[in-house]
Structure formats: structure tokens, C-alpha cells
Design a binder for these strands. Sequence first.
DNA 1: TTAAGACCTGAAGT
DNA 2: AACTTCAGGTCTT
Length: 293
Amino acid sequence: METGTIRRDELAGGLDLYRTLESGQTYLWRRGDGDMYGGTPAPGEWYVTVVDGEVIRVRTTDAALEWESTTDAEPTVRRLLRLDDDLEAIVAAAPDDPLLDEAYEAHRGMRLVTDPPFGTLISFICSAQMRVSRIHSMVSTLAREYGDAVSFDGETYHAFPTPAQLATATESELRDLGLGYRAPYVVRTAEMVADGEAHPADARELEYEAAREFLCQFVGVGDKVADCVLLFALEFDESVPLDTWLRSAIEEYYPDCDRGSYAETSRALREQFGGEYAGYAQTYVFHHLRTGD
DNA sequence: TTAAGACCTGAAGT
DNA sequence: AACTTCAGGTCTT
């Protein structure tokens, strides 16, 4: 086992692991006590994920972020949790706006994540008309049923399935696992990636709105899901996914941003939220409205 | 190009 | 206890 620590005072703007990993951005981590999206975790609780076949566990103590892994995971931890983002500067540069100020203030230390593109794509295909806790359990089920088992420290974890592994699933299998009408979307998208027809990571090479169009070619992916993949996996920080919570925020706080179409409304809200880091603002507002605190 | 309806399912609310 | 509503939308017509 390899281990390491990263001192908290190195992290500008802090790090709140609970809010970062349980705010509906990522469904690829699991909490040690198994109660993700249940109650708040005990202090020092571990979170676990599997990336490229390597198990990575992290937790925070008063002084540091600690990690344990099957490999030297510090660079990966820094990337996954965006530890090199100057969160303090990002918050300071955000537009002076009552709702934004309130959201940023209430959830200090919440960072964006950078998850693997394929797992993120499938997670958010599953997210349609779903509660975050159920999305998380659906993704865990897919890992358990189709992903590689990896042993670490006496425990068995499951990687999220590769495109080829998930492409072996049938629609009826996934319906039996509770995916509902999303089942055929997941199968067909996994087949597209496995067959080399397209890969979500290829969107990295494109300009933002072209990248969103590119991702919409996958089955079950519309503008909103595409924006989530761009924001939570491909580091398009200007992406502003328009979900039900953000739409209600527009209605109540930014009625001028309602331009009818997704593309135009999204563009208007992106400007309202300061452009470059509008996605950070979106994630704070989403979490703030959804949790009500 | 925009606008209704259908679509799985379980947890939460009457 | 049965019934209705709702959840990080997308697809089809």
C-alpha cells in the first residue's frame, strides 16, 4: 500500500470532501460507511474510487488530506479533486450576486471534480429524472455487475466497467437492474464507444459549444447531460448545465436569462455567472438550492 | 425550429 | 393502505 498526505494549508480556498463528493457531480466514488447521499459522514470518513484499475482512498483530517492507494496516487488525487485550483481566487472573481454569494458562502471548500469521461457519460445518462441517491446506487450496481473486481487492504472494490464490458449488457438485463427507460440508452452508448464510433474524451479537442454538440451524438445524451460531462469530466469550466434547479433559479432570480432555447438561455446564464468559471457557480447554486442549506 | 407526450421506478408526500 | 407526485431529461412525432 502506498500512502501520502497533502497539507490543508497548501489548498487555497480549502477542501470540503463531503460537499465535493456528495453534491451530485460524481457518482464514481463511494463512502466507507456505505451511506453515500444518506446522512453526513463521521469526521475522517474515507471515500474510495477506482481509476485505471488502481484503488484510491482519501479522507481529510484537521491538518491534511490523506490518501492510500495501490499505486503512487498523488498526481491522480490532485487531478480528480482539482486540488491545484485556486478556489479562493475563483470565488473572489465570481460576479457580485446575492444568490451566488450565498451559495459560495454556505459551501466553502466545495471543489469541482475531474472524473473519467466514460463513467461520467454513463452516470449522467442514468441521471435523467432521477434522485441523486438513486443515480449513485445505479452506478454502483453497474460497477458491481460489469466492472473488474480489485482487491485492496482486504476489501474488494469494483471499477466502473469499460465500454467493452458495458457493451456486453443487454437492455433487459439493465431493466432488471432498475435502470428503467435509460437501459437501452446505456447499452447503445456503450456500444458506440466500444466500437470506436466516438469517444467522449474526443470532445476535449473542440470549442465549448461544438463539444456539447459532439456529445449529443450519444444515445440518451441531450444538451443538459452533455454539459455535465463537459463540466465534471472534461474541464470545460464555462459549462452551465441547465437542470430543473437552475431553471427554477432563472425563473426566480434571472428572468432576463430565459431566452427560450437551451443554447441561448445557457449562454445568457453563463455570462450572468462570469463566463470562464461559470460552471463553478452553477455547481454551487445547484447544491445550494437542492439541499436547501 | 418549437411543442407536447411518453417513458421506468421507488421514495416521499397526501 | 392506496394513490399521486416527483426526480440533475431525452426521444419521438
